[in-house]
Design a protein around this nucleic acid. Structure first.
Lengths: 183, 183
DNA sequence: CCGAGCATGTAACACGTTACATGATTGC
DNA sequence: GCAATCATGTAACGTGTTACATGCTCGG
């Protein structure tokens, strides 16, 4: 699966939830999908143009005035299901914190600590924003959820697991940096 | 920090451990740094050419025959320390598994399960290869380690934490998929 | 002598971000 | 009327992978 169709997948997926303008699409992706996905305007608008040209999306039946609203066509929905089934292209790993820590003996003790402390803060911030989302989503589910809610909860939980793991690692590592006389 | 200098950082860092050819560099990055970093030939060779032109690396004193071996110059070592201190550019998140699972209500139950099972297998495989590395590294440390060993252990531990978290999430999610009648 | 792996490079292409440019709408 | 935000797009740039091309070396 080319990376190109990854953007297509995100755009078609978001439009399957609700018809939207390009602008709203970007906000939806930054908001709801933000913990595990991102797209920029420079990707979204060309993608919308292509998708419309290919007949996968179109302006919805009820004519709106403000902005170009797009909805999935029947073909678009089929294409989305097809993309969802394609194998996952894992991006090559690139962790800047670990790359630097690997060469930790070239850094001063406080610089090493700083690296790990920053990672800890990022994880804590991420965990905090995820628990806000969790409360919102659980309230929504209690109120009578749509079919997608359980899956959104699963993706949210993945983020929490990852963030907690990073937090635990950072704490363990800060102790190690203190203990062995190198920190 | 531009992405460009991230490649520079990885190359200079690897050469700080030991002088190498471009080919060996690629293997070193794929092997030792492989769990949190990657570079392709298409990046490494141009980077080497640039670094040599800038006087940051050079063929080492003892002339070799097979391949172009490079070592850090004094300037290169200074540049490496400088790069290590620069702020970390976090790549935007892109998790193909979660993107698909988010739209899980458009998939068949076995397709949803497959998504999570694959993620579980990847995490298990990663954990297995990390424990091999851990044993090797611990043996090395017991035998009398170099100054970098503790830091390599920390990066390794980060990978283990992440892999275990993914494993735990996958197990939890597989249960949820079974329980709620959607899996 | 031949195949596997060592070694070096380039060109084409895909991906993705950022900055810039522009204008409409809407709430104060 | 003015500022904020909605909204759409493009151009330039940098990054990064992949495929291709080429030749060497060394063990069997």
């Amino acid at each position: 699966m080319s990376r190109q169709s990854q953007t297509e997948l995100a755009v078609l997926g978001a439009l399957s939830v609700e018809p939207m303008t390009g602008y709203a699409l970007r906000q939806a992706i930054a908001g709801t999908l933000g913990h595990f996905w991102s797209e920029s305007f420079g990707q979204i608008y060309p993608a919308l143009a292509r998708l419309e040209a290919d007949g996968l999306i179109e302006p919805p039946a009820d004519g709106r005035t403000s902005g170009q609203v797009f909805a999935l066509t029947r073909t678009g929905r089929r294409r989305l299901r097809e993309l969802l089934r394609q194998p996952i292209a894992a991006p090559p790993p690139r962790n800047g914190t670990l790359l630097r820590l690997f060469f930790g003996d070239l850094l001063a003790p406080d610089e090493r600590r700083g690296l790990v402390e920053e990672a800890r803060e990022r994880a804590a911030a991420s965990l905090a924003s995820l628990s806000v989302l969790r409360r919102e989503l659980e309230a929504e589910i209690a109120a009578g959820a749509d079919a997608g809610a359980p899956y959104r909860l699963m993706t949210l939980s993945a983020g929490e697991h990852t963030a907690r793991a990073q937090l635990a690692w950072a704490d363990e590592t800060l102790v190690a940096l203190d203990q062995d006389g190198t920190g």
